[in-house]
């Protein structure tokens, strides 16, 4: 499985852009006004500006530096400095594969992005950053008691904390950080979701406390 979870669908609304890291690539992830997702190499072909600082306008992602517009296929649509110019076909952002399922956004920098099939209904809890590698995050999450009891571990990424089913996807962010994307079974009460949010912060404390 070469796809990487980069964020929760809830946290990337239409016309928004974010930065992610996938298999060592710096990636700009953006959602167009129709809800479509796009993952591009985070480097403007013009002068290398990170496209994740850009803005979505007229169905394009535009670069903050000189405002060049790029179509959904990555091709350059418009160069503001030369409004009459038809940009050459050769100018294009590098496009990667992206998909979303069960509230999670997945990107692959090397082949077609695939989201794991999930049974059941899930709701987003939060994406939480840990200053340690993914193995330590998983270990801490599985070993941090919730309401006095250790979570039960089911299939990969699946846990039950108290009586609530949880889904956890971890992805490295840079060399020293991990972003854990957490979802809970649909219908979990607000109090329950907040309690789980506190619980994963406790897990973070123990994950970060140990030797690096």
């Amino acid at each position: 499985m070469t796809s990487v979870a980069v964020g929760l669908s809830r946290d990337l609304a239409a016309k928004r852009v974010m930065r992610a890291e996938v298999q060592g690539y710096d990636i700009a992830v953006w959602r167009d006004e129709n809800g479509g997702l796009h993952a591009w190499n985070n480097r403007c072909p013009h002068r290398g500006m990170r496209l994740s600082h850009g803005f979505v306008r007229d169905g394009h992602l535009a670069c903050l530096y000189h405002g060049w517009h790029f179509r959904k296929d990555g091709g350059c649509a418009y160069i503001p400095a030369h409004p009459e110019l038809e940009p050459p076909e050769t100018i294009s952002a590098t496009v990667f594969s992206i998909t979303e399922n069960a509230g999670v956004i997945w990107v692959s920098a090397t082949d077609t992005a695939k989201a794991p099939a999930e049974d059941g209904e899930w709701e987003p809890l939060r994406s939480l950053s840990f200053a340690c590698p993914p193995e330590k995050v998983r270990h801490a999450i599985e070993n941090t008691p919730f309401a006095g009891q250790l979570p039960e571990r089911a299939a990969s990424g699946h846990l039950t904390a108290g009586s609530t089913a949880l889904l956890v996807h971890c992805a490295p962010l840079g060399d020293a950080e991990t972003l854990a994307h957490l979802l809970v079974a649909a219908g979990t009460s607000l109090a329950g979701r907040k309690a789980l949010s506190r619980w994963c912060e406790t897990a973070r404390e123990s994950a970060e406390a140990g030797p690096a």
Partner: peptide, 26 residues
């Protein structure tokens, strides 16, 4: 802007970044 240009070093190989007419000075 400058802290978000990649690569950090200035590429001198003309294939690495694509200029347009207004970039003649660069």
């Amino acid at each position: 802007i400058l802290e978000n240009q990649k690569p950090t070093l200035l590429p001198l190989d003309p294939r690495m970044e694509i200029p347009t007419r207004c970039d003649l000075t660069s």
